[in-house]
Design a protein around this nucleic acid. Structure first.
Length: 631
DNA sequence: TCACACGGAGCTATAGAGGA
DNA sequence: TCCTCTATAGCTCCGTGTGA
């Protein structure tokens, strides 16, 4: 294989251009390096270890892997099956959330297997999927004893899963903070260390505008990165950096990638998990509304808290109202900032689908992992694992071979629209798998009661805002949030108009369907940001929530498996969009190879406009994420 | 023999239900 | 609306069993 060193680049676009203009004699080396690395990080015949922070994007990515490993939707028994694949999930410890418990709940929900506690309760085995307590990535020094204990625990878990599965090699998918991985490589056993065949690092870099760490990756020091390179060189294994913006996964909201996110999140996740995201979103929405009210009246701090306490039903809100009843939330600067476009845009998203990520403003980093792992058979069709040398101190990158580091970038045939469509198609395929076993969401009166309280308090707060005291245009924009509360995905799912549809709350009957909620994502016709498949909601394209998925609108009595459903969609493409489903053969996306079946991925989609949100909504790609400083 | 894993017991915090 | 009670989850401790 010919070795080469390309020119240095200071951003990803320049890097891509230098790759495209690479001399012919080096192209095969470059392609071979990429192919070999992608084969390793997607190898289904090795044990994949996933470090996860248990946020919603991470849980959904894990769901996509579990769906493949356990053949959800088409397996014989809803529970442990002999043919299930193995994997190990290392739950990042955190003071603010019970990540271990959250991941255990997800795996139990999806697999249907009874969890058996081991290692003094720090590891739980669900058939062949094991969840182990990991390390708190906010602790980067000290606590040596606890660190060694965690490494030993992970060693034991890995050894047992390898023994149970008969697998020999490991691919370690790590998060943004390298500390624990480096410690593990350093002090684990030599047999486990030599079992490593590849490493991926997710969300550590943000290469789009300059070669810089992401917000989360700033915890890594230059020596950390150099150590990682040294270790990988010694072990002769590739390290692949995965980050969402580099893969053109630029949108901050899961609603961009998951059709009817506010509805189907309740199928993807058990109620106990979805709740925490719902609570956070409701808390943020109320805070937003009362900040505006406070700014409008020139009242701040505990004055505003009193207003919240008076107008938000305490019985419905006592379990989630935290930020909105804290006087620190209503400092003058914070209240005035509520009128900014990006803040209102965030509120629009929450009002439509009130299931906030636990880490705000970080985008969906875990979705960068959707292109690696055992569920990804077609990664090589869309991505390149570019072999690179990264000069972290000089913030430069260049193509090189042989290389230890790689960055996963879309091939030149891919653009924002195609990538977005493909992820939508993939998530729709995963949803179908889960939905086959779990059915449609069953929403209770508790959710409805909480939402009614949110809507009532919001409407009181906004209704009393004096427009003359607000910046020009803010009142109109805020009106879109109000519209979403009642007519967005969530409001619609809880309270469908009685004369147009059937409530989703209790309905599991496959013979009924709801109409399309208001799906405008912006401030109006000229500034819409769209999500999913529809660029605008004109009121003329009445669509139905795919409450019954592929079966909705199909001949009565015809129950489809996911595969059959997609086949049907491909045969009758003109019908599927009206059912709110993605249609094979339509739109830009090619079928996503998933679970041994080629799903017709992608919708007849108009993707969210990068510039569709005034001077840029944070979720619309118009707000570039902070690039951070150089190392 | 020793280290480690397992499983049960008990404590604490929290959520939810029900009654005053 | 507030208070109390109950159930549950999470966690730690400790006795017992097992394998190197």
């Amino acid at each position: 294989m010919a070795s080469f060193n390309g020119p240095w680049s200071s951003d990803l676009d320049t890097f891509k251009k230098s790759v495209q203009s690479m001399p012919d004699q080096y192209k095969s080396s470059f392609a071979n390096a990429s192919k070999s690395t992608l084969e390793k990080v997607c190898d289904p015949k090795v044990l994949h270890i996933w470090e996860s922070n248990s946020d919603a994007d991470g849980l959904l990515q894990l769901t996509s892997v579990i769906a493949k490993l356990c053949d959800l939707g088409v397996r014989k028994h809803k529970g442990a099956n002999d043919g299930d694949g193995s994997m190990l999930i290392i739950a990042e410890e955190s003071r603010s959330r019970n990540g271990f418990g959250r991941i255990c709940q997800l795996v139990e929900y999806l697999t249907g297997a009874d969890g058996k506690r081991h290692l003094e309760g720090t590891a739980v085995v669900f058939s062949k999927i094991v969840v182990a307590r990991g390390w708190d990535n906010s602790i980067l020094s000290g606590q040596e004893e606890a660190l060694v204990k965690t490494v030993k625990r992970v060693n034991t878990a890995v050894e047992r899963v390898l023994k149970m599965s008969g697998l020999k090699k490991i691919v370690w998918h790590h998060g943004a903070v390298l500390h624990f991985l480096l410690q593990w490589i350093n002090i684990t056993t030599s047999s486990l260390r030599s079992a490593l065949s590849a490493i991926t690092i997710t969300g550590s870099l943000n290469l789009t505008e300059c070669i810089a760490p992401s917000a989360a990756g700033r915890a890594n020091t230059l020596p950390d990165l150099e150590r990682l390179e040294q270790y990988a060189k010694k072990l002769d294994i590739p390290v692949v950096f995965l980050d969402a913006p580099s893969q053109l996964l630029n949108f901050e909201y899961l609603g961009t990638y998951i059709y009817y996110y506010g509805y189907y999140i309740n199928t993807f996740l058990p109620n106990s998990l979805a709740r925490s995201h719902l609570h956070k979103a409701q808390d943020e929405l109320i805070t937003f509304a009362f900040r505006l009210r406070g700014a409008s009246e020139g009242r701040y701090g505990s004055d505003v808290v009193k207003m919240v306490q008076k107008h938000l039903d305490a019985n419905k809100a006592r379990h989630w109202a935290k930020m909105c009843v804290s006087k620190e939330s209503y400092e003058k600067s914070k209240c005035r900032a509520a009128g900014k476009d990006e803040t209102i845009h965030h509120a629009v998203q929450l009002a439509d689908s009130p299931f906030a990520l636990l880490a705000s403003g970080a985008g969906v980093p875990a979705f960068a992992r959707l292109s690696v792992g055992p569920a990804c058979a077609s990664t090589q069709d869309y991505y390149t694992a570019a072999p690179v040398k990264i000069a972290f101190a000089k913030v430069r990158i260049r193509p090189t071979s042989p290389a230890t580091f790689h960055v996963l970038i879309p091939q030149s045939s891919q653009d924002l629209e195609r990538v977005t469509n493909r992820i939508q198609g993939l998530m729709m395929a995963v949803l179908e798998r889960v939905r086959q076993e779990k059915g449609n969401p069953v929403l209770s009166d508790t959710e409805k009661g909480m939402w009614d309280a949110v809507v009532k308090a919001y409407e009181w707060a906004i209704g009393g805002c004096d427009e003359s005291n607000m910046p020009k245009g803010v009142a109109k924009k805020v009106g879109f949030v109000k519209g979403k509360l009642r007519e967005g995905t969530w409001g619609f799912a809880l309270n469908p108009p009685k004369n147009r549809g059937v409530a989703a709350t209790t309905n599991t009957n496959a013979g009924t369907a709801m109409l399309e909620p208001n799906r405008t994502y912006g401030f109006g016709q000229s500034t819409q940001q769209t999500r999913g498949s529809h660029s605008t909601y004109t009121g003329t394209q009445q669509q139905q929530i795919p409450q019954h998925g592929c079966g909705a609108g199909l001949p009565q009595g015809l129950l489809l498996s996911p595969v059959q459903g997609i086949s049907y969609a491909q045969q009758v493409p003109s019908q599927m969009p009206t059912q709110g489903m993605y249609a094979g053969g339509q739109g830009q996306a090619r079928g996503q190879q998933y679970g041994n079946h080629c799903f017709g991925g992608g919708q007849a989609a108009v993707i969210p406009s990068r510039h569709g949100f005034g001077h840029g909504g944070s979720g619309g790609g118009g707000h570039p994420q902070s690039m951070g400083g150089p190392w």
